[in-house]
Design a protein around this nucleic acid. Structure first.
Length: 682
DNA sequence: AGTTAGTGTCATTCT
DNA sequence: GCAGAATGACACTAA
């Protein structure tokens, strides 16, 4: 009681397909609202796909599953803080319990409204990033659902009619008992790779086009609080068609939800409301699952996330062993009882589009919701200890850098560790038949000694197979979020998803804005739930590092990754220091060169000055010599001829006038040496 | 399209 | 023997 249902409905009819998104904000009164929690619910800081919280953590959390429509921003997701404003406007005490987004996919076969398939999935779209993965349990490949740009196989929700498009790969609706063949598994795996990039871009383009109009409509009411805008905005209160898109209001959808206790979707008659076909048509289609099945799949996706809430546990045997098992037991019920899905949760059902419930208040809407759905949602919240981003895993393996950096001695053909030997399942067989699907799926096993039942794995795979063949990135979303891989399997995964011809720029296109800023190791650590930051791993002392590894239950691969992260981090710093030192050496050498060159110039100048001084002294000596001889007279008073006489300095300082022929040979040699030296210097 | 600087990583050697 | 530093070589990216 006292809960509040916030329904945000996106009913987009793009050509032949109808998407209907329900955002259920379940706000429970017993506790005081924590604003940060609300902000988390609507803010960009909330990690996408987070399945957070345990009550043991002292707070309720939210469950955000994956949106199937890709990584683009959810057009119907409240902007940052909007949820908080909306809740405040209601004036009731509350806390955000969880958020569940459900969408209906109403697809019709190519151009034929009567062949429509009605799909209902329940999932949670990320309110912040608008990213997510489909959890619908029903899907059909619709490569040829002509005219519908969004029905291409690139769209995870692409719907088609396998009966009407038999030539194309058809993926059966998964149910509790039906399994796709191994061949289909292989087909899907191949199809995933071959069409993934093209489909991604094409789907993205189409989605942008189709959503652009919606965003424009929403912008018109942006000045109002979103809650008010949704209630008053004309485009949202009415179903209208503008060729490709169809909208109807929250009230309309809620009336749908609340009017059909038997089958919540039977009352939807979209055909009467300008929709090309009714969901009933899809419901009655023998080739497609009903809503219950669809929601059952959704629940199973929750299970997939719940079964192994984390792959890292502290050394707490009780917590480690009891928690997942308990969750498993709790979640076994919806699996074995498919009726306990949307209908099973006793949602009041879906009303036709009458107006009698338009006056319902939000509380009224909540009261109409059976508590079972809350229980289920809460169970989801309780069962997940911390957020996990399957997309990261996908990106992790979609971004196989040429230098993976992982020192994993393994063969690419190696198989994963045992997923389960109890029975051979379709998914198991498929995973063995394709190295790609194998490597990809093998990533999603239980860790910490807990392994989900093969049937559940298969169930998840069916969802994957049926719905997301066109969007490779969503594959991991549908599986368990833990990793029991041996290094070999992961190595093969890295290699299997290596696209040598494609640049990282393309591959990084699959990363969201947040992850794009993360380093590769950070993304790896995040994807594998390494409970430490990269900086911590790298910078902590070795003793602390080793003790840390021993204090936590970590898989071999996690330990290997942590050690690799530390090694690479250390080496990165060392390389930076090395380059810095090298640069310093180069700069110092350049300085030395400059200094030596300056010193050389100085010495040259000094030498030149010395030469000049010597020449001056020589000239002075020469002048003095001639001056002396000019003043000398012989005994008869005649001038002394300098060519016949020379001045000779004795050791006692006296100067003698000596005829040149009397100069001793030793004196001549000394005089000649002095002449040659002076000549060389000159 | 080619060049260059910066960076991360690996392999190897040294401390 | 191990951890880390140092460094050459290589690949990749952005400008």
């Amino acid at each position: 009681g006292g809960s509040l249902l916030h329904l945000t409905i996106l009913l987009s009819l793009a050509g032949l397909r109808l998407d209907l998104d329900l955002d259920l904000y379940l706000l429970l009164p017993p506790r005081t609202l924590l604003e940060d929690e609300l902000l988390l619910s609507g803010g960009p800081t909330s990690p996408a796909y987070a399945l957070s919280p345990f009550p043991a953590s002292g707070r309720w959390g939210r469950a955000e599953l994956l949106h199937p429509k890709g990584r683009e921003r959810d057009p119907v997701a409240p902007p940052e803080g909007q949820l908080l404003r909306e809740v405040r406007a209601l004036g009731v005490p509350f806390i955000p319990c969880t958020r569940v987004d459900a969408w209906l996919v109403h697809s019709v076969a190519a151009g034929d409204a009567d062949g429509a398939h009605a799909l209902l999935g329940a999932a949670a779209a990320s309110s912040a990033g608008g990213v997510g993965a489909g959890v619908n349990g029903v899907s059909q490949a619709a490569p040829g659902s002509g005219g519908n740009p969004r029905a291409a196989p690139s769209s995870p929700l692409a719907a088609g009619d396998e009966e009407k498009a038999p030539a194309e790969p058809t993926y059966q609706v998964s149910d509790a008992g039906g399994h796709a063949s191994e061949e289909n598994e292989v087909l899907r795996a191949v199809d995933h790779r071959s069409q993934h990039e093209e489909n991604e871009q094409r789907a993205s383009t189409q989605r942008e086009k189709s959503l652009q109009q919606k965003n424009e409509d929403e912008n018109k009411v942006a000045d109002k609080p979103a809650w008010e805008a949704e209630k008053t905005s004309e485009p949202r209160n009415e179903i209208h068609r503008n060729g490709t898109d169809t909208f109807f209001s929250l009230e309309d959808l809620f009336q749908l939800l609340s009017s059909q206790p038997e089958n919540p979707l039977e009352g939807i008659s979209l055909g009467d409301s300008a929709l090309p076909g009714s969901i009933n048509d899809g419901m009655n289609s023998p080739t497609h699952a009903n809503y219950n099945q669809a929601v059952s799949h959704d629940v199973n996706l929750h299970e997939a996330m719940l079964l192994c809430p984390d792959n890292t546990f502290r050394r707490d045997p009780v917590a480690r062993t009891s928690q997942p098992q308990e969750l498993f037991l709790q979640l076994n019920s919806p699996l074995t009882n498919p009726e306990q899905t949307l209908a099973g949760t006793n949602l009041p059902g879906f009303l036709p589009f009458d107006n009698q419930m338009r006056d319902l208040t939000n509380q009224d809407l909540l009261y109409d919701l059976d508590v079972n759905i809350f229980d289920e949602i809460n169970l989801m919240s309780l069962a997940t200890e911390e957020g996990f981003d399957p997309m990261e895993v996908s990106q992790l393996f979609e971004e196989p850098d040429s230098d993976s950096g992982l020192s994993l001695n393994s063969s690419h053909n190696s198989t994963s560790v045992t997923k389960s030997n109890s029975s051979r399942s379709v998914c198991e067989g498929a995973s063995r038949s394709s190295s790609e699907s194998l490597s990809h799926r093998d990533l999603e096993g239980a860790v910490g000694g807990y392994y989900p039942e093969p049937t559940k794995l298969c169930h998840m795979d069916h969802r994957s197979d049926s719905h997301f063949h066109g969007d490779f990135a969503f594959q991991p979303v549908l599986h368990n979020h833990t990793y029991h891989l041996q290094p070999s399997a992961l190595e093969s995964t890295y290699e299997s998803f290596s696209w040598p011809g494609k640049s990282q720029k393309i591959r990084r296109g699959y990363l969201n804005d947040t992850d794009r800023n993360l380093s590769r190791d950070e993304r790896r650590a995040k994807a594998l739930h390494i409970p430490f930051s990269v900086d911590e791993i790298v910078q902590m002392p070795v003793d602390s590092f080793n003790s840390m590894l021993s204090r936590y239950y970590l898989t071999d691969f996690q330990v290997s990754l942590i050690r690799d992260i530390r090694r690479r981090g250390k080496n990165k710093v060392a390389a930076q220091n090395c380059r810095r030192r090298k640069l310093d050496v180069i700069l110092n050498l350049e300085d030395d060169i400059c200094n030596l060159q300056a010193k050389k110039e100085t010495l040259k100048r000094e030498r030149s000055q010395c030469h000049k001084a010597i020449n001056i002294m020589k000239q002075k000596l020469h002048d003095l010599y001639h001056d002396v001889f000019s003043r000398l007279r012989d005994d008869e008073g005649r001038p002394v001829n300098p060519n016949q006489y020379a001045l000779q300095c004795s050791r006692d300082g006296s100067v003698l006038i000596v005829p040149k022929e009397l100069v001793t040979p030793g004196q001549k040699k000394e005089n000649q040496k002095g002449k040659r030296k002076s000549e060389r210097r000159n």
